[in-house]
Amino acid sequence: MSVNLHGLWVRYPADSKLDPVKDERAGGLKNIQLSIARGERVAVIGPSGAGKSTLLRLLATAQQPSAGKLDVLHSNPWTLSAGARKRLRARIGLIQQSPPLPPRQRVVTAVSAGRTGQWPQWKCLLNLVYPLDIPGVAHTLEQLDLTEKIFARCEALSGGQLQRAAIARALYQAPELLLADEPVSAMDPVLAEHTLALLSGFSQERNSTLIVSLHNLEMALRYFPRVIGLRDGEVMFDKAASALSSEELQQLYANSQLHPSTAAAADRHHAIQIPRC
């Protein structure tokens, strides 16, 4: 298994005095039970505030659980030494919705930073001065139609271009577990489709695990064989995309502000044939 969560709770800092198991106000994530095998492609959907980003931060070992058991790539991150945890993180790629790329850093340097967890310190420092694998970075950027920006500063990129640069960094890292939090939110529909197809293809070619949170329900159903629905920090369903009913999707988003494309997709689910990658 790439990921195994058993009885997992995450509470918000404001609730730090609450019992994460007994008090429903603890928030965050509540008694999560999940197992995801290597090579699976999984979409995590749900309304805003459902806990999707918290789940991804947890799997990226950027956040420690309040209770329960967490196993990522056959290790419990929080029982490892600092050095071992750093090596584990080098095997996990995280694409954030708002990529924290240094504004004055060139794209080639920002993308090649994806390998810093795998390189010795001297190589990381040298790479800051002179990028060591310009052809490799250029090849990765080419797949995202961003080759012409290779020597541009990150501050000169648009929001969608920044997202693509962050995706290029994760792909260049070649992780065993790739996590993405709304990776196409700043892209137009054509680029979003291309990018999700690229991520899906990367996962299939390398047999790496791909877990992506999405607000766009139609894309989630198209590119991901398995869908997990989160609401109020709890798993409402976990099943094959083809087995989801429109009633389950409507219930997941009940009393929330649906994005028009999400509402439409929920209404016509099973009324049309959705192609699969």
Rank of each mutant, 00 (worst) to 15 (best):
residue 45 I to T: 02
residue 191 L to I: 10
residue 116 T to Y: 09
residue 210 L to R: 02
residue 198 L to W: 01
residue 125 L to V: 15
residue 10 V to T: 05
residue 124 C to P: 11
residue 119 W to L: 13
residue 67 A to H: 13
residue 264 A to M: 14
residue 113 A to L: 14
residue 162 L to W: 02
residue 26 A to D: 00
residue 220 A to Q: 04
residue 182 E to I: 15
residue 95 I to R: 00
residue 98 S to Y: 13
residue 203 S to H: 04
residue 30 K to C: 11
residue 79 T to E: 12
residue 208 S to G: 09
residue 33 Q to L: 06
residue 99 P to Q: 01
residue 117 G to N: 07
residue 1 M to L: 14
residue 103 P to D: 05
residue 33 Q to A: 07
residue 24 E to S: 10
residue 18 L to K: 11
residue 107 V to W: 00
residue 114 G to N: 00
residue 76 N to H: 12
residue 136 G to F: 02
residue 89 R to A: 04
residue 236 M to C: 12
residue 121 Q to P: 10
residue 156 A to L: 13
residue 259 H to C: 06
residue 217 L to V: 07
residue 235 V to F: 03
residue 269 H to F: 13
residue 110 A to V: 05
residue 22 K to P: 13
residue 86 K to F: 08
residue 130 Y to M: 10
residue 66 S to D: 07
residue 157 L to Q: 01
residue 146 L to I: 12
residue 57 R to I: 12
residue 97 Q to A: 14
residue 177 L to P: 02
residue 186 A to D: 03
residue 3 V to F: 05
residue 27 G to N: 03
residue 181 D to R: 07
residue 168 A to D: 00
residue 120 P to G: 04
residue 182 E to D: 11
residue 205 E to W: 14
residue 89 R to V: 06
residue 271 A to R: 15
residue 2 S to A: 15
residue 1 M to E: 08
residue 240 A to M: 12
residue 237 F to Q: 04
residue 229 G to M: 10
residue 207 N to S: 15
residue 145 D to Y: 13
residue 261 S to A: 14
residue 140 T to K: 02
residue 177 L to E: 01
residue 166 A to I: 13
residue 192 A to M: 10
residue 166 A to V: 09
residue 243 A to N: 07
residue 268 R to F: 07
residue 77 P to S: 03
residue 155 E to L: 11
residue 11 R to G: 05
residue 90 A to W: 06
residue 206 R to Q: 03
residue 92 I to K: 01
residue 111 V to A: 03
residue 229 G to P: 09
residue 81 S to C: 13
residue 195 T to G: 03
residue 239 K to W: 00
residue 274 I to T: 05
residue 201 G to H: 15
residue 217 L to E: 00
residue 109 T to P: 09
residue 92 I to N: 01
residue 155 E to V: 08
residue 112 S to H: 06
residue 273 Q to F: 08
residue 270 H to S: 15
residue 80 L to G: 01
residue 259 H to R: 13
residue 270 H to Y: 09
residue 28 G to K: 03
residue 88 L to E: 01
residue 176 E to R: 09
residue 7 G to C: 06
residue 174 A to K: 11
residue 36 I to E: 00
residue 258 L to G: 03
residue 189 P to V: 14
residue 76 N to K: 14
residue 38 R to Q: 14
residue 60 A to V: 13
residue 162 L to F: 03
residue 78 W to Y: 06
residue 6 H to S: 08
residue 236 M to D: 01
residue 184 V to Y: 01
residue 277 C to Q: 11
residue 131 P to F: 04
residue 90 A to N: 06
residue 221 L to I: 11
residue 233 G to P: 10
residue 266 A to W: 06
residue 88 L to A: 05
residue 193 E to F: 15
residue 127 N to E: 08
